[in-house]
């Protein structure tokens, strides 16, 4: 069950927002379980030090196998399309060849936690999805304002330093809802 972030301790460096980290695993045994029931809360944090403390205990995405996702979202935003903060927005989706997930996930979440995107309240959260073929990194934002979406893309390209042929697509959540593939 979800627990809110503790207050930053003495001498710690507060973050602009508190965040919550979730985990989900899809397998044969829980294929019919509803998406939100499959989400496992890991921890939430309010400072840089609390983040590193939690992060040090967690298996790197690249070392995971099977159909696994990590979700890092601002406290109060559920990592689901239906959440009020998400439903009018969308996400940048980046396909990663095997071997890039851990580095790119770390670069992405550090940029998010450090407010490097400079788009005000727009960022909702980040997801790394480990799959059999390519892995998928995504960054969710609130609105479908083209200027904001482009600015987020530019920062993603700066902070992730992706291989030149990396596929980046923007997908609105309403499109995702219609997508039956």
């Amino acid at each position: 069950t979800f627990r809110p972030a503790p207050k930053p301790g003495e001498g710690e460096h507060p973050l602009q927002y508190n965040y919550a980290l979730w985990f989900s695993r899809r397998s044969q045994s829980n294929k019919t379980v509803r998406y939100d029931q499959n989400l496992k809360f890991i921890a939430s944090f309010a400072s840089v030090e609390q983040f590193w403390n939690i992060y040090s205990y967690i298996v790197r995405p690249g070392d995971m196998t099977g159909h696994v996702d990590y979700h890092l979202f601002k406290e109060g935003i559920r990592p689901m399309w239906e959440d009020d903060a998400n439903k009018h927005g969308g996400k940048w989706v980046i396909r990663l060849k095997k071997g890039l997930a851990s580095r790119c996930w770390e670069n992405l979440i550090l940029a998010m936690l450090g407010e490097q995107f400079m788009v005000g309240e727009e960022i909702c959260g980040a997801v790394i999805s480990i799959r059999f073929q390519d892995d998928i990194l995504s960054l969710w934002n609130r609105s479908n304002d083209q200027a904001i979406i482009s600015r987020i893309r530019d920062t993603l390209q700066r902070v992730l330093n992706l291989p030149p042929n990396t596929i980046m697509d923007y997908k609105s959540h309403t499109d995702s809802l219609k997508d039956t593939s």
Partner: peptide, 21 residues
């Protein structure tokens, strides 16, 4: 208002602080 901003190198620096362990 002001925003609390950290670049990557600052966050990596703070990773080694005793408070982060």
């Amino acid at each position: 208002g002001t925003r609390i901003v950290y670049d990557r190198s600052r966050l990596m620096q703070l990773r080694n602080s005793p408070l982060a362990r």
